[in-house]
Amino acid sequence: MRAQARIGFILLLMPLILWLGLLIIIPHIDMFLISIRERISFGVYETSLTHYQKALTEPLYLRTFWRTAVMSVLATVITLLIAFPVAYYIAKMARGRLQQVLFLLCLIPFYVSELVRTFGWMILLRETGIISHLLQWAGLADQPVEMLYNDAAMMVGLVYTSMLFMVVPLVTTLESLDDSVVEAGYDLGGTGLSVLREIIIPHAMPGIVSGCIVVFMLSLGNYLTPTMLGGKDSLWFTEMIYNQFIVRSNWELGAAFGFMLLVLSSVIVWGMLRLTGRTLQETLG
């Protein structure tokens, strides 16, 4: 009986173990091993940290690395600022059917692939696109306006792609906030701002933190949006990894980049949790 239960438990655990082992742990160990070897000549390798050294000294690599980090944080902050009022409206102000419809509206863009969604922005923003035509038609511009291929366009794309992942956790936590707690905040003399700061935001904190972590990771690891909407100067770190692996066939450097990205996201997520005084355990519920 006991032995049977044990086998059942192991069988139930198997998909998780396989998933973690085959797709995450083994590739990462392999990646790490690749990243610390140096090719001396054909088929001859030596262990060295030369690729990390290269990544950390080459200005272009380093600049892209930090830019990607800062831009991802910025995209997360902008997403939070836009998603919070949206989520508050859906969770607390909309009632019944309207609530469901609004929630669905947030979800609908995700029915089409990310590529098509991003292409939608290109149709809007490009030189011969809709907005450019509208501006000319309204007389606000006397020649076609190019709004693509810059940081702003890329930021728009990143925020748009991440929106749902911020709205969903926020709506969930805000829905659990009792209306009378907010009313009590006003009743006891609070203004809109102080109720937001002292009651609503502290209550929504688990949602804010988990939403931010997800959005940050998605932005950091995004490849499509920076490539399609970003300009020559908007190089994203994932593009560099792609280039090393696929274009230059330099797996060693690519693996080193990959590991740097992993360390970066871990450090920033850890910092975010420290900053808000939460543990990963609390945030994941």
Binding site: V181, E183, A184, D187, G189
Partner: peptide
């Protein structure tokens, strides 16, 4: 409501769960 000289004890009390008792009373 925040300027009226009346206060309300709510049906489910609506204490602020994110604060301590002292912070609740001092709010």
């Amino acid at each position: 409501p925040n300027k009226r000289p009346v206060n309300m004890v709510f049906q489910h009390l609506a204490l602020f769960p994110m604060m301590t008792i002292a912070e609740n009373i001092g709010y």
